[in-house]
Write a protein that binds this DNA or RNA. Structure first.
Lengths: 153, 153
DNA sequence: GTAGAAGTCTACATGAAATATAGATAAAAA
DNA sequence: TTTTTATCTATATTTCATGTAGACTTCTAC
């Protein structure tokens, strides 16, 4: 299960990417629009900034902006900002060279061998889907549903 | 990240499957062999029994046995016993019809659409790898490493 | 039929992590 | 220099994973 942080982060970014005609956003506005606790969102946006996904300006007229275009932001990079890793077990961490504390022989650990396949499958998906792709999927789904309703009426 | 429960469960099952010439195992022996806290392992094996993966007999000469052959036990079924689900978000649960508490419009939620792909990729792997496969991967790796050492000497 | 071996159940302890909240501080613009 | 906005530090709360203790039940062998 991914954390609320990741979900809130994705929601905030999706909101920013989808709102045309604005490039700077106030924490309070995003929080309100997406139903995210404001103080919690503060910390989340800060994390995204520290990971190079958002940029910010203080003072009047300031706020947060996307550091790159939605088509250049992968879901993998966003989720990693919060989860630290996509690895299903510690010994497969992408960022630290660490082994699972309980493992007796990491070299031949069957769990690790199986989970390595899972890890690369997950990474292959999340690193090849961008924020723009996610919005497009969502929009496509919305269109499909509106049409169904139209026909029904 | 998968839980310690899942890892300990997999380790215990792997131990039972790999130990030839025995079909009934004492909790204490498994705990000792795999370095798992005994009382914790009790609860874990009980979960596996309740999920039809192990069977047990009480009394002298009793113990736990695999309910099916290792080739008939998928890693997916084992992990699900502990995690309840393989879903990366609540709204994709395989077992409950539930939505994510924070979701404003689940029908067009981009996160859900992307994570659905992740969920099926993970399930495709774990439901097609058996306990026997896992042992075989492990053994193959062990052989490979022993050979390397032999050559080095 | 009873003694002891083994699994089963209930309850709780503990610690860490996720999820927030409060309030002070710093920077920028007008 | 006042207002607006992000940023930082600290802390509260809750939940969950991990693990322990001890009583209880069931079974087998003798």
């Amino acid at each position: 299960m991914i954390s609320m942080r990741s979900k809130y982060g994705l929601k905030a970014l999706a909101y920013m990417a989808r709102t045309k005609g604005k490039d700077s956003f106030l924490i309070a506005d995003i929080a309100q629009a997406e139903g995210i606790p404001k103080k919690f969102l503060e910390a989340i946006l800060l994390t995204l900034k520290n990971n190079g996904i958002l940029s910010s300006r203080k003072g009047p007229g300031g706020g947060y902006s996307l550091a790159k275009s939605p088509a250049a932001l992968t879901i993998g990079a966003i989720v990693r900002s919060f989860e630290g890793d996509l690895a299903p077990v510690q010994c497969l961490s992408e960022t630290q060279q660490s082994s699972c504390p309980e493992c007796l022989d990491e070299n031949t650990c069957g769990i690790k061998l199986v989970m390595a396949d899972v890890a690369s499958a997950v990474a292959a998906i999340l690193d090849n889907v961008t924020l723009a792709d996610m919005l497009q999927k969502s929009e496509f789904e919305r269109q499909k549903r509106t049409q169904v309703v139209d026909f029904a009426i």
